[in-house]
């Protein structure tokens, strides 16, 4: 079942659910009917993991690809390589099953226009590549993604349907 943005809005009105906010370098897990939302993904990447059979979902907001170049790590959810395994273990703690997890990715945009060497390192792109790599190594399938480009995104996971809504400025919301 794929809800159109209009149906999504209608469903929202009839059954109010708790929307749990996930900040930068954070991760949260919840079960149906709650929703997880992370606002303003730029070069950051949002990763949702969802177990259809138990309707448990998790959302992670990563900022950087690789933790190995840092010594003092206070927020593992900031990094793709630490955050994704951590999210998986949190979901399993809540009763989710690894082999039925499906992933969705959003973000990894290049927000700024104009040439600058530091920005040429394109963190967004590297976040996407690393997230895909880590998911693959854990045997988790990427169901869909909305990545790259140059727009900021807000990502919402609905744990009832497993659908992810992507909001951008000046465009219609999109379900992936």
């Amino acid at each position: 079942m794929r809800l159109s943005p209009e149906r999504w809005a209608a469903a929202e009105e009839t059954s109010p659910v708790t929307e749990i906010q996930v900040g930068i370098a954070e991760l949260k897990v919840c079960r149906q009917p709650d929703r997880l939302i992370t606002i303003g993904l730029g070069s950051c990447v949002g990763v949702t993991l969802y177990d259809q059979s138990t309707r448990i979902g998790g959302l992670l907001h990563i900022m950087l690809p690789d933790s190995t170049q840092f010594s003092n790590i206070t927020k593992p959810a900031k990094f793709a390589d630490l955050g994704i395994p951590l999210l998986v273990s949190q979901i399993r703690l809540r009763g989710g099953r690894l082999n039925s997890l499906q992933a969705k990715l959003a973000g990894g945009a290049q927000m700024f226009s104009g040439l600058n060497e530091k920005f040429m390192l394109n963190i967004g792109e590297r976040n996407i590549i690393k997230a895909r790599q880590i998911l693959k190594s854990l045997g988790i399938r990427i169901f869909s993604e909305e990545v790259g480009g140059n727009r900021g995104r807000t990502m919402i996971l609905d744990t009832v349907s497993g659908q992810v809504l992507i909001r951008t400025v000046g465009n219609q919301a999109k379900v992936i």
Binding site: I24, I39, G40, L41, G42, S43, C44, M63, L64, A109, M111, F112, K118, F119, L121, I123, G124, R151, G152, R153, T154, V169
Partner: peptide
């Protein structure tokens, strides 16, 4: 664009 997206990207970069 969105404030959150811009500032986080700017700081990360």
């Amino acid at each position: 664009d969105m404030l959150g997206a811009i500032m986080s990207s700017s700081m990360a970069a």
